[in-house]
Design a protein around this nucleic acid. Structure first.
Lengths: 253, 253
DNA sequence: TCGCTCCGTGCGATATGTCAACAAATGCAG
DNA sequence: CTGCATTTGTTGACATATCGCACGGAGCGA
């Protein structure tokens, strides 16, 4: 059950590391840049890049490497293995249609939430969210719901390892304040976020439990901040959210 | 420029192959299953899987392996390196808003188109499309536009390598018919699809050219099939599509 | 020309793939 | 339930691939 150091392939891990060095800031990299970004030897980085290029995962103009859409296939191979998106997408579409707001489903990956399905309605967020998009867990409604399902010690560790960074003046960043919020979320069964991710954006999230009662994902709806208190608006939305959660429960494992 | 067999890492290629063996049909696989699906030796497949698990790309319950959302990060690393999605997303949002239909941008990857940005409006398609989703190029409006930009010999080869499969009774599958369509698309500068992907779904696409005049992507809008002839509806939509294409041209490389 | 950085390559040490053997698990027939 | 056949996971040994280091050469700016 435990993975011994002996039966693991360094080359594979290094190659994946190389892929991850490509970011929006560095879409085109030379061998030396990848080497610096990954900490690998230049010769090794070169072999990784050439391998990626040879198999169509990267393009090479003799100097710079770029990732190709072929790499996307890896990610979607993963999304495709999740039953969740397929199950919830129609429910999200329907939900968004009825309440007139964007709704999303995400799961937790470390200290981040990953969107796995989304029905966009009107645009309130400045950035486009899509399946695969990531946001920090600590300041999002879905993140709060998912963190609340974890042992407190684990969350404390996570916050220490990834110190919260404020995104707006509303963002709570002190670990103790966040843990207190989580306790409340745990008690009330939903999370409210008021402009902690982005100014003007509020949201409500509930956990999606599987058949064993474990929170495997979260469902939220976004709102444009208005004069109505968030609590009041949330009251109105929660039944619809809970209805979706109830519908999915039986089919999630 | 040419990649010699000597400077490639077998392990990396094999690991990526292993990741790609996970599909919607086979989300949970044992070592032997992966070995069979990838053609690798059981011992090798085991090492790949253990490596993936060790680095958080896979989960292991002692018997079956599953991919984790960590793998998604590879795909999004790739999406993030593309300037295209960020550039076109706001334009798509605006376009969809004005014409009241879903619009998307995709690029060509082999014989498939890959969605890189999308503004969903109402739901006409049975399956949810999202960035990263793939459809065959030969029967989609965006695919036709992108194939039309390729040398005919290349398309002919591609059609031979990936024989078209009919998705509806409207789908053209004979290579010659498709090539004829492509010639027309090339001549008129846009593509129309009438229920070749899915019954009840029509669409119009135009190429997005970069500053050098090369078609690097395609833009489309979907329509619910109705009594109005597709040509007529398309007439009305094309100016808006072309306006977006013109706006993006200067910034695409 | 010099100094610098970067790319490609040769080499010894090490990691790793392949193959075969083995043990445990599984399935099946009676 | 038993015995047998088959599949599966794991391990060991050996040949080979690959890593990381070091070096040489090319490009480039001063």
């Amino acid at each position: 059950m435990t993975i011994s150091e002996r039966d693991t392939m360094g080359g594979l891990a290094k190659g994946l590391l190389v892929i991850e060095t490509f970011t929006a800031d560095r879409p085109r990299q030379s061998i030396a840049e990848v080497s610096a970004a990954s900490g690998l030897d230049r010769a090794t980085a070169r072999r990784c890049l050439l391998t990626l290029a040879h198999h169509g995962y990267a393009d090479w103009d003799g100097k710079f490497f770029t990732l190709t859409p072929r790499v996307l296939r890896l990610g979607t191979a993963c999304l495709a293995t999740m039953p969740l998106p397929q199950i919830v997408q129609p429910l999200l579409d329907d939900l968004s249609d009825r309440i007139g707001q964007s709704s999303s489903v995400s799961i937790l990956d470390g200290a981040e939430i990953v969107y796995v399905a989304r029905a966009a309605q009107r645009k309130v967020m400045s950035i486009a969210l899509m399946p695969g998009s990531r946001l920090p867990a600590f300041c999002t409604s879905m993140g709060r719901v998912l963190l609340a399902a974890l042992p407190e010690a684990e969350v404390r560790e996570m916050l220490a390892a990834h110190p919260p960074v404020a995104r707006t003046s509303f963002t709570r960043t002190e670990p103790e304040a966040i843990l207190a919020e989580l306790a409340q979320v745990r008690a009330q069964g939903f999370a409210l976020i008021d402009q902690e991710v982005e100014l003007g954006l509020q949201s409500v999230a509930v956990p999606l439990l599987n058949m064993h009662g474990r929170a495997v994902a979260a469902l939220n709806v976004g709102l444009a901040a208005g004069p109505t208190p968030l609590e009041t608006t949330a009251e109105g939305l929660l039944p619809a959210l809970r209805a979706v959660a109830a519908e999915t429960r039986a089919v999630l494992r």
